[in-house]
């Protein structure tokens, strides 16, 4: 299978990965790394939208969808943050500098950055859900003038599980960025001076103008359901809230059927959904 539409003769091979090389491996936490990959050669660099993903292939082991966690304004660099949870992700987290892997993409719709322009932007992330939102922050910082207040609320399991810690500290410390960053953990010892508790608790002190605010939420599905409830409690409408959903994905291009979520395919209708577009599916079981 491959892409065989578009212009006759210009056939892009959508089902065949391009073999690329690992440039750098950044250890984020005990089980999570960020791969810095030399992107497949493309005219103008490897262009992607915040929230899009690639299919990453570990030789002989298989392929998984992994969101791009790097800077969309820096297309000569391709970053993926991977947590070792299964066979393929475990293999990917073992890769060393110079090792090869396969890449297909980018796929998916991405976060609606245009819609956030001129508005307050509330970013709510849980766990690894920060990875697909980091490109949003990079984008905002590049185009800071296009957005009003921007706040990131991030919940992790323990202080040791916080992703991109140095960057979070940097963003928090730079007054000129005008970016509010609040981090909380579910559990901590006495040596942690940050917040303890769930990320939704932080929203109580968020500035949420009911008009002119958009919220981007990404994390485990239950966390997103709680976050939605909290955002609605503070007056946000379902048309102001976007979520990034996850389902089993095999082909990434809408042909294999696996990632269906109600009437949609997460791989091309998602992974980012405006809450009202999925009706009440979020609270239905086994969709």
């Amino acid at each position: 299978m491959k892409l065989a539409k578009s212009v006759p003769g210009a056939v892009t091979e959508a089902m065949v990965p391009e073999v690329v090389r690992v440039r750098q491996v950044i250890r984020e936490t005990g089980d999570t790394i960020t791969l810095n990959i030399a992107p497949p050669p493309r005219a103008g660099g490897f262009l992607f939208k915040p929230g899009q993903f690639n299919m990453l292939y570990a030789f002989g082991k298989g392929e998984v969808p992994i969101s791009i966690s790097g800077d969309p304004g820096h297309p000569s660099e391709l970053l993926h943050t991977v947590r070792a949870v299964g066979l393929v992700t475990s293999e990917l987290t073992k890769l060393q500098i110079g090792d090869r892997l396969g890449v297909r993409g980018p796929y998916g719709n991405g976060w609606p950055m245009e819609r956030a322009k001129g508005n307050d932007l509330v970013i709510v992330a849980g766990g690894l859900g920060l990875a697909p939102l980091r490109p949003v922050i990079y984008h905002v910082l590049r185009q800071r003038g296009e957005f009003r207040r921007v706040a990131l609320y991030y919940g992790a399991r323990t202080p040791q599980d916080i992703l991109f810690l140095h960057e979070l500290e940097h963003w928090r410390g730079r007054l000129d960025l005008d970016l509010s960053v609040e981090v909380t953990v579910d559990r901590a010892g006495a040596d942690w001076f940050g917040h303890v508790g769930v990320v939704t608790a932080l929203l109580a002190n968020a500035y949420l103008a009911t008009d002119g605010t958009v919220a981007f939420v990404c994390g485990p599905e239950i966390m997103m359901r709680f976050a939605v409830r909290e955002l609605e409690r503070y007056g946000l409408a379902r048309t102001q809230i976007w979520l990034s959903l996850e389902r089993n994905m095999k082909c990434g291009v809408g042909l294999c059927g696996h990632c269906q979520y109600g009437p949609t395919f997460v791989c091309h209708d998602g992974p980012v959904y405006r809450l009202d577009s999925i009706g009440d599916l979020l609270s239905r079981r086994e969709i």
């Binding site: 909380t184 559990r187 010892g189 006495a190 917040h195 508790g197 109580a204 002190n205």
Partner: peptide, 11 residues
């Protein structure tokens, strides 16, 4: 040692 259960904010 100490386990932090929950931190509370103004309000």
């Amino acid at each position: 040692g100490e386990i932090q259960l929950e931190s509370l904010l103004p309000g």
